[in-house]
Nucleic acid binder design. Structure first.
Length: 275
DNA sequence: AACGGAACCTGAAAGC
DNA sequence: TGCTTTCAGGTTCCGT
């Protein structure tokens, strides 16, 4: 699934594929992926112009066009941008394409949860995002304050894009394991040291994933036959890499969490002094 | 305001 | 073998 690292790779790829090249043609074959304007309007704003900038915030991409129009792209659960030759055949699940000279950049998205949004200014989905762990870093104090208001579990809290932008099920699972935090612990119950560890773990996990996946043709872990590069995610029943205890799978907020009951045990609460 | 759950989708894998 | 069910999860929406 595309989470922050996968979207970051998409951003880097789009930068190199689109840079300085004029868009000759735009085809949107499934209008379901389009929001905020018609497919024709997107084509109209793009054709003949160039993309001057590609930014990423959380799981969102923002393409700035000559003239200032903005094209936002969210990959949903199965979206990806790939580069092909213009003459290459239409790909399975291809939903849109930009042709630039002999190259065509294709948007492929089998489940169509992703979308393209044309706008003249930043959209709410972009502006309401929390800090981006990769570009902004994770400030433990700021994170602690955000978590202090949330009664839900820390795992569910991390999936809230207003808390941190770009964390999905995989990165949340991996970071909690790295930081040795019980995913079931209420977000507001985390102590300073735990939040600090979590902030560090978050960035480390994202950077490891990035280093592992960087390349022009990204593979998602759910792709048929794809290996699972993650130490914890999707590995229920396998031994914890740290303590060999069998990893356990639970469901939180309708989503799977894998964790180690041994080394992600809830820390004993410090004794309260009677007053 | 915060929360839980359904809905949106398709394709692969597992179950029968 | 071939059909049915389950699962995957980012986000939005809706009801509480």
């Amino acid at each position: 699934m595309p989470e922050l690292p996968e979207v970051e790779i998409a951003a880097r790829n789009l930068r190199s594929w689109l840079r300085k090249k004029t868009i000759d043609a735009v085809t949107i074959s499934r209008t379901r992926v389009v929001r905020g304007g018609s497919a024709a309007k997107i084509a109209e704003s793009l054709v003949g112009g160039r993309v001057t900038k590609v930014d990423r915030r959380g799981k969102w991409l923002r393409l700035t066009l000559e003239g200032g129009a903005l094209l936002f792209s969210h990959l949903g659960m199965s979206g990806r941008w790939v580069k092909r030759a213009k003459v290459d055949e239409i790909l399975r699940s291809e939903r849109a394409r930009l042709d630039l000279g002999s190259v065509s950049v294709r948007y492929v998205d089998p489940r169509m949860f992703g979308r393209l949004v044309l706008a003249s200014a930043d959209i709410d989905e972009w502006t309401s995002l929390g800090p981006d762990p990769l570009t902004d870093g994770v400030d433990a104090k700021v994170l602690e304050k955000a978590l202090s208001k949330i009664r839900r579990s820390i795992k569910e809290a991390l999936l809230d894009q207003r808390v941190l932008a770009g964390i999905g099920n995989i990165q949340a699972t991996e970071a909690l394991w790295r930081a040795r935090i019980d995913p079931r612990a209420p977000a507001q119950s985390l102590e300073g040291a735990q939040v600090k560890a979590l902030a560090k773990a978050m960035v480390a996990s994202i950077e490891d994933t990035l280093a592992h996946e960087e390349g022009p043709e990204i593979t998602y872990v759910e792709d048929a036959g794809a290996p699972n590069p993650f130490p914890i995610y999707g590995r229920e029943g396998e031994p914890c890499p740290r303590c060999r205890t069998a990893l356990v799978r639970i469901v939180q907020g309708g989503r799977a969490t894998v964790f180690c009951t041994e080394c992600q045990a809830r820390q004993a609460r410090p004794k309260r002094r009677a007053t």
